[in-house]
Structures are given as C-alpha cells and as structure tokens.
Design a protein around this nucleic acid. Structure first.
Lengths: 220, 220
DNA sequence: ACTCAATTCGAACGAACGTTCGAATTAGTG
DNA sequence: CACTAATTCGAACGTTCGTTCGAATTGAGT
C-alpha cells in the first residue's frame, strides 16, 4: 500500500548485500541527509524547521516524510551514519599498527581529518549530542561509547608500556575536548590542514602525558 | 506610564553607584535569570519556550516581559553577566602574579572553578555561543575576544620566557576545548573537584607546550 | 486612607511549528 | 501503450510559539 517510511526500510526493503545497492531511494535519501546536515549545522536542530529542510533539499514539505517519519529520526540518521563511518575508518587505520604512541597519533589524525572533511556533519554530531531522546539517543550513545572505549584502550596501553601515571578518563575527555572544540573556531582560510593540526595537538597531548616530574604540588 | 522594559533600565533608572543598589527590580530580575539559565541549560535556547521559563520562575508569561523585551535579550543578559564575571575574577586573581606558568595555571583554575560552580550558566555560554544575532552577538563577542586575548598574552609571555616554539592560536584554542568540553561529561558524583581537575589539565597542557624534541617528523 | 507608580496577570494575537492525507505525477516493467 | 508501484505535492490539521494589551493587583510614600 505504500507507507514506506513507517518501517525501517533498508535499501528498498532488501537486506543489504555486500557493497551497496544504491537504489534510487537510497541516493535521494542521501541527498536529503546532506542538505539537512548543512541546515542543522547552520541553525541548530531545534532552530531548523522542516520548511527550512524542504527549501534546502528542493523537495516539498510533505515529500520529505516519504523518506523518514520524523524530524528526530532524520537527525538520528545523520548522527548514526557520521559516527559509524568515523569509527569504521579508525578501525581500518589502526589495523596492523602496534606502537601505542603511533596508535594515538592515528586516532587524532583520523578524527581531525574526518572532522574537517565533514565539518557540518561533525558539528551536528558534537553540538546536537543531547537532542535525541530515548531509543534514538541510546543507539547513538552506544556508538559513542565504543569510540570512547577504543581511545581509553589506546591510552591504557600507552600508560602500561611507558609506566606513566595519569587519569585515563581525564586524559581521554580532555583530548576529545581539544579535538571537538574545533568546530567553534576552525577557519579554512586561516588554519592549517588536518594533518598539521593533528600533529600539533598530538604533540601537546602526548608530551603532556609523559611524566617528567609527576604531579606538581604533590604531597600535601 | 510604565513601559520599563523597552529601555535598557539600569537598576530602576538610576545610574549605577559604587556597590549595588539591589532594588526590588534587580533582585527579581536576578531570580528570573537564574531560573532561565537552568531551563536554557536543560532544553537549549531554541528548545526552551517562554512558557517553560514562566513555569520555572513562577511568574506569568506576560509578567516576564516586564523585565526584558524579548527571549533573545534574556539570553544576552545571561551570557553577558556570566562572561563579565569570569573575566573580572580572572583579572583580580592574576594581579600581582609574575611567573607566566603560574599565570596560566591560575587562568585554568579560575575557568574550571567558575565553570563547575556555575555549570548551567557556563553551559549556556558555551553551547549557545552562536544563538544571538547582530548587536547582542557582537557585544558578547567583544568580551569573548578580550578573554581570548588575555590567554594569548599569557602564552606569549610563557613562550618568550622559556624560548618555546608552538602556535599560540592552536594552543589557546586547544586549551579552551579541553576546558569548555567539560560541560558534556562532568559528573559531580564521579569526577574530582575543580582544583584537582585544573591541576591535571594544567599538567597535560603545560608539559605539552614544553619542547623536549621540537616537532616530531620535522624536516620533510 | 488615599494616591500614584511599580508590578503582575489572563486572554488573546498572528505566525510558525511538525505532521498527515488524498490526489497528482513520475518511473519501471509487461 | 497500459498497468502498477514508487514518488511527490498542495493544502490543511491541531498545537505551540513569542509577544502584546488593558485591566487588576501590589507596594511605598504621605
């Protein structure tokens, strides 16, 4: 009967095969997601109206609902796809690398490269992290937790190998702060490319973790 | 006649004397700002409705407009007061301190202490940084620029004194990222207090700036 | 107690919101 | 071409939005 967006709808109903079927439906949906990402980036999730999204994607207001059942699910699709992709790329890049310091540098480089190549999507991921509710929120939270745990693992290994002492939690969250804050200030005309930025942040962060003198005013 | 909120209204029309008149008007406005801060923190600026603010502050919807002329101006008042206060406290604390490293540590401690003591306000300041427009935006931006420049000054001095080499811009913005990101993860039941967090972040950041080996793969 | 200004409120305004529905259009196959 | 399913749309739904207005209430000074 044709109420397609009420179900989850994976690639025109088929179960996803190996590469990507890329049906008409999938391609149009991807286009809409791209335009919606730009609008969410510029006006924020709450501040962007369905009419804004309609205008940006060149599709009628009602037409959008053929592709997703609610504004919230649209944000979910954007966040899930973005987060899944960055985790996937990270895993591929980490494969075969054994040195913990190099692994951390790869983590940072992967994050910043993807961030700058997909600024709008990553801003929506960072800035609208608490906009989803219940089921949507928990599914994105699961991916985030996996990403977080990977970083924790790398730092734990670095710590073990070099006999360092620092709070892994604070270190990881400080690193995420350094990296994610970039969406508030990065200017393509002024700032260096991802590789150089990743190098500078890696230097600050990694050297910061090495204990030359333990904590400062320890003891008392 | 009584259309008070159309003018800027400084403490019941009087020109502000030395300490603080603290009229009835001022006190009530401060209460409203406090409640509004909590609501903006929880639901975001766009996501919070005037009716939410009315409910939270226990004042009728129309009554709120006696104290400010628009929702946007309310956010502006919150941001301006918060930012002004943190800059003011910083200046007081930096007075008399000469050692650049100690100055940077004070900067970080001041920021985190105020952040954790006023989490809602600081989240509204960080997370809704782009919500204001035109005149409101530029006035807050001016304070932000001053705050930023103070930090740049401290790092430049540290760099000069110790003969270090790093990009001040990247360093400052990385530091702000580390510090401001805290609103996304800090949990009072799990995490340490401001002083300890400031110590750990200062250690990571400051040690990160000291060049033991210059940049890594330099040359090529 | 009377007065005037300061403060508060109920009720309503028009606009914009997310979403729905049935009809119209288009694309894909025989 | 004809037939069916996939896609798109105009128009409207009921709700909520930020804001306004005139009347009611309260507080302070005499």
């Amino acid at each position: 009967m044709g109420s397609p967006s009420t179900a989850v709808r994976v690639s025109a109903g088929r179960h996803r095969a190996a590469p990507a079927p890329a049906t008409r439906y999938d391609k149009r949906l991807a286009e809409i997601l791209t335009h919606a990402t730009d609008v969410f980036c510029e006006k924020g999730y709450e501040g962007a109206s369905m009419r804004d999204l309609s205008r940006a994607s060149g599709m009628s207001l009602a037409g959008l609902y053929y592709y997703f059942e609610s504004k919230e699910r649209l944000l979910f699709l954007i966040q899930k796809h973005t987060f899944t992709t960055i985790v996937q790329r990270l895993k591929a890049r980490l494969e075969g690398v054994r040195d913990p310091e190099e692994q951390v540098r790869i983590f940072i480089l992967n994050h910043l490269e993807y961030f700058l190549a997909n600024q709008a999507a990553m801003k929506v991921l960072s800035h609208e992290a608490d906009a989803l509710k219940n089921g949507f929120a928990s599914e994105v939270a699961a991916i985030k937790r996996e990403y977080y745990r990977i970083c924790v693992g790398l730092l734990e290994e670095l710590k073990r190998e070099r006999g360092l002492q620092f709070s892994t939690r604070i270190a990881v969250l400080s690193l995420f702060g350094m990296m994610n804050w970039i969406y508030t200030w990065h200017n393509a005309r002024v700032d260096a490319d991802a590789e150089q930025l990743a190098g500078e942040m890696s230097d600050i962060f990694l050297r910061g973790l090495m204990n030359g003198s333990r904590a400062r005013k320890d003891g008392h």
